[in-house]
Amino acid sequence: MLKIENLHASIEGKEILKGINLEINEGEVHAIMGPNGSGKSTLASVIVGRDYVQITDGRILYDGEDITKWSPEERALKGVFLGFQYPVEIPGVSMVNFLRAAINEQRKYRGEEPISPSEFLRIMREKKNLVGIDSALTNRSVNEGFSGGEKKKNEIFQMAMLEPRLAILDETDSGLDIDALRTVAQGVNALKRPDNATIVITHYQRLLNYIVPDFVHVLYKGKILKSSGKELALELEEKGYDWLQDDNGNGGI
């Protein structure tokens, strides 16, 4: 589904990603771990097309097509979803209007009729229960006045509504207490299907107790140092990141 080849990317002339290779197939859950500043969020940004990150080399293939030149909304309509680390507040724009616009864009893209209000409300109710989001939140403006935890749950709720093929969750676990973490993880697990895939970006192993990854990748100073099964996460938790470097002399700097 997603294939990243030798991806180099920089921000304001400073190289952040230094040759990433990554392949993700349908039905898989990948975890990308790494310390602060290793390039995790940059990788997420570059996949969804934030333009402050410049790709200097390499390709991102999505279903075989190079998407590096695509606009963010084209990628979104093709099913790429980002759960933001810091969801922005949009005053005055109600969650309902926002989501209905997003769903109708998808429908238009697929050549379908706009969703009827009653159908929309039905789906919304259903997904709210699935994610365990407070129904009052959807009556407010997008993210406005939401607590940190509410914002993160709201991201998962949107993911449920938009049913992406590839979901990237950028540090969705940071700032969550254990109950909220569990709710978020339950939501993610419930949305898992054989034809979609999830990338979980985190620097704690904690979330991976609830969302069990098929693969764990360690990103360090712009490169993937190690890829392995879920046991790698536990090893990282125990030993930290330094041993990887020792293991692999040129590993970082």
Partner: peptide
Amino acid sequence: FYCNQRGISTEDAVGMIVNGYA
């Protein structure tokens, strides 16, 4: 960008934000 990421075009996003503001 947040709107774009959810598949909403820039023009519609501006319309939404402006109408929200007003």
